[in-house]
Amino acid sequence: MRDNAKGGALTEVTFFILLSLYTPSHGYGIMKFVEDKTQGRLILGAGSLYGAINTLQERNWIMPVDDGSGRKKEYVITEIGKEIAEAEMKRLKSLINIAEEIIGGQEQ
């Protein structure tokens, strides 16, 4: 994971995992979410997903959900995680604005 928390730039995978966990989900659910939302452009391998989940848990951006039955392990985004995701959305919006000023001006 190369996320720079200070600069706020998340990797695409990290941002997608955070977004997928606004509703509690398990590993397969996250994989499916990423694949569906990107129409298969971005496919997340199990090993990479596993590493990402562990890193995000260590940072307290996501946490496991204890549903009692404990069959399939589910995760959910934390308050810190939501702050990070919101900051990332703002950063991307401003990036898009700059890009449109420069590139988008040609289209009218």
């Binding site: 994971m1 190369r2 990797t11 995978v13 997340l44 391998g45 090993g47 990479s48 990402a52």
Partner: peptide, 9 residues
């Protein structure tokens, strides 16, 4: 079928 898909991973 790939287990590792991101460059850093």
């Amino acid at each position: 079928f790939e287990l590792h898909t991101t460059n850093s991973d």
